[in-house]
Each structure stands twice: as C-alpha cells, then as structure tokens.
C-alpha cells in the first residue's frame, strides 16, 4: 500500500467522523443559517427598493453611491485598479459573502480542526495507526478532510449567494461571468485558508491536550491579525509580510504575476506549517 492510498483511507475515515460529529453539523447549520438570513434580508431590501423607487431616482442614487461603493470595495479588496474593474461588476452580495468567508472561516477552521491530532495523541488511539500507516499519511489525511469541511462551508455561502442573485440582484455582469466570478472567489477562499488549516494541524500535533491546541491556534490567528494592525505603523510595515492576509488582495488581481505571487505566498505558509506538523509527528513519541 502506498502513502497515497493510506492518505485516502485516513481521509475517508476523517470525513465520516467529521460529518457525523455534532460539532461539525452545528457549525454547518450555523453557517447555513447566517447565509440564509443574510440572503433573506438582502433580498427583502432589494425587493422593497425595486417596488418603491422609480428608475430616475435609482439612477440618481446609483450615481451618488457609486463612489461610496467603490471606496468600500477598495477597503475590502485593495486599490488595484485591474481587480476593481471586475469586482465592481460583480454583484455586491457575492463580494460580501467572499469577505465574510475570509473573515470568519479562519476562526471556524480553528474551532473545527484543533483536536484532529491532539485527541488521537491524548487517547493513545494513534498507536493503533502507527504500525499500519505512515505518520505523514495521518497528517495529510486529516489535512485533506479539514480542507473538504472548509470547502463545504464556503461552498454553502457561495451557493446561497448565487441562488439569491439569480432571483433578486440586478447586475451588469452576465450569468456566466457571475458564475466564473463565484468559482474564482471559491478557489481563492480555499487558497487563503490553507495556511490556517495547516497551522491548526501543527498546533494539534504539538499538544496532547486539545484545549491547549485550541488556545494556541486561536492565539496564532490573533497574532496574524495583530501583525496586520501593527504593520499600519510605518516603522513596522515589514510585519505585513508575515501575515497571510497581506496576500489576499493579490488573489483577486487581474494580473497573472500578482495572482501567482499571492498563491505562492499562501502555499508557502501552508507548506511550512504542514511540513512542521508532519515533522513533529514523525519525531513524536506516541
């Protein structure tokens, strides 16, 4: 049996566990509720506007609000003119969900994945695996299952936003462009979350007590955020390169080099943390 097959078997088991776990189901439900509620409110407001505002008024409001909206988009996704063009063409609801995912999913990743390895270490159940499977396959299988869980959560939001848009939100972009935009948002979300999944697994492999893994993973996410804040000070601006959030705007840029650089940064973060988790597991006394 090769490592790929080992990883697949671990992945299968972890997925079964994940989607059977009450914690994961609760998070999925909460996410679905948030998405549904947001969609409902947005649709209701849009509907009311459509019913009560004349075309002339809408045009005036749109012109007046265009600059404000642009400022909001810029603050969310950076001031790259090339990306702004297609972002502005996307329905606001899709942008909102994308940003929401980027803000909330790191925390959700920590909450759903923190005990993946530490529980096995704590209970000793990893000893039933050790003579049968490479330790790296255990880490990779768990990583893949976390990735799929996050993908499911993110897809839920994107699906809701797409369904909503087709019913209520007027947009300049065609359906095909919106769909492609949604797919790109989805791919970028996953890419942006890879470091957080790897980081959580790293902490999970470092501690036998799941609570410590949770606390340290949460602290690490906060540190990333703090680094981003501190980087606003000119003397500390170099700190921004240490936090994955810095590379998020590049994912949406129209230029390929920017996209590749940002992707490489996220993959680099993820590889470093995942490599650390594998190294730690390989060296650990079980």
């Amino acid at each position: 049996m090769n490592r790929f097959k080992e990883t697949l078997l671990i992945l299968q088991r972890e997925l079964r566990r994940t989607f059977r776990s009450s914690r994961s189901v609760v998070f999925l439900l909460i996410y679905a509720l948030v998405a549904g509620l947001g969609a409902f409110i947005f649709a209701r407001v849009s509907g009311l506007i459509d019913e009560n505002v004349t075309d002339e008024m809408r045009q005036m409001a749109a012109n007046a609000n265009l600059n404000v909206y642009q400022k909001i988009v810029e603050s969310f996704f950076g001031e790259d003119a090339s990306s702004l063009e297609w972002l502005m063409a996307m329905p606001p609801f899709l942008l909102f969900f994308y940003k929401f995912n980027l803000l909330c999913l790191p925390a959700l990743v920590v909450l759903t994945c923190f005990d993946q390895i530490s529980t096995e270490l704590e209970s000793g159940s990893v000893r039933y695996l050790a003579p049968r499977v490479h330790r790296s396959a255990v880490v990779l299988g768990k990583f893949a299952s976390s990735l799929i869980l996050v993908l499911a959560l993110s897809s839920l939001m994107t699906a809701v936003s797409l369904v909503l848009m087709t019913h209520s939100t007027p947009t300049e972009a065609g359906a095909g462009a919106i769909f492609l935009g949604a797919v790109r948002f989805e791919a970028m979300t996953i890419l942006a979350l890879l470091p957080y999944i790897s980081l959580t697994l790293l902490f999970s492999s470092l501690f036998r007590t799941p609570l410590y893994a949770l606390m340290l993973s949460a602290c690490a996410v906060l540190v990333f955020w703090l680094l981003g804040v501190l980087a606003n000070f000119e003397s500390l601006s170099f700190l921004k390169w240490l936090t994955p959030a810095t590379y998020e705007p590049g994912l949406l840029g129209a230029q390929l080099t920017g996209l590749l650089k940002s992707s490489a940064a996220f993959l680099g973060f993820a590889a470093a943390f995942l490599g650390g988790a594998i190294l730690r597991m390989n060296k650990a006394d079980l």
Binding site: S123, G124, R127, P131
Partner: peptide, 11 residues
C-alpha cells in the same frame, strides 16, 4: 500490538 492504556477512538 495491543498497546497498554491506548483507548480506541471513542466515536
């Protein structure tokens, strides 16, 4: 191997 004190995965 039957390891000492290792618990089977509870869930």
């Amino acid at each position: 191997i039957l390891p000492q004190d290792a618990r089977l995965p509870a869930k």
